[in-house]
Amino acid sequence: MDGFQEQLWVLLLGGLLGLELIGKVPPTLHTPLMSGANAISGITMLAALTLITRAGDNTLLLILGSLALGFALFNVVGGFLVTDRMLTMFRSGRKRSGGGR
């Protein structure tokens, strides 16, 4: 019970932190922000890993865990890379002429 209560506190404080972190975002960044936050939600891959490591020799669990890991990793890897791809495009005109592309 104590562990659960502690987890509820963690949930509450994490949620409040999330509300505070995104106060003023320029519209330019809404799409990358959504995509980046989405990549972070792929952190369920940790739960998938835990499932696999606790599976022992239960094949069904290994398959389920591996599938869960694959889907979550697709979310994480794809999400972070595509966000990075979007963000590399935001360059200022000054930097561009100076940088000599």
């Binding site: 404080l13 994490g14 409040l16 995104i22 106060g23 936050a37 972070i40 940790l46």
Partner: peptide
């Protein structure tokens, strides 16, 4: 997972 999920959930609502 709980912290990260809660942060993304709350931030998503704001967005």
């Amino acid at each position: 997972l709980i912290v990260a999920g809660a942060m993304v959930g709350a931030a998503g609502l704001i967005l």
